[in-house]
Amino acid sequence: MDKATTYQKRVNASTQNLSAIRNFVSEHAKEQGFSAQKVADIQLAVDEAYTNIIKHAYNNDSEQVVIINLEFDDDKMIVTLTDHGIGFDVEKYKKPNLQKQIERKKGGGMGVYLMRKLMDEVTYHAKNRKNVLRMCKNKN
């Protein structure tokens, strides 16, 4: 069996912590030998996921907590983000229609699309107000 290395961080749901979370993720991914491009992809996917939790799961309530777990084995990295807020359906994503959003003067709605584009695998489980988003990135 492969030996996995794991790291965990519990943080309050605040955009103030975005930069620290990006550093946490990129530091360990770099250390484990991921290429600069892959580190950038992982960093952005986690940023988008965490931002979605703050805005949609917790409605900007910074008292709430998000648990971020990083797991590395020989050929991949698995990031899981766990929250206890309102669940959202990552399966129902579609590519944002930029033209339409611009006409409606609307930003947003791009996070899930980016997460799926940037990571090799994205799954989401919501049960009893516990939401677990799992994203996987292959090393090669």
Binding site: E48, T51, I102, K105, K106, G107, G108, M110, G111, L114
Partner: peptide, 17 residues
């Protein structure tokens, strides 16, 4: 050095204005 979709969203929201 870095941009997330929230940054792109700002350009989407104001370009029409």
């Amino acid at each position: 050095d870095y941009i997330a979709s929230a940054g792109l969203g700002v350009f989407m929201a104001y370009i029409e204005d």
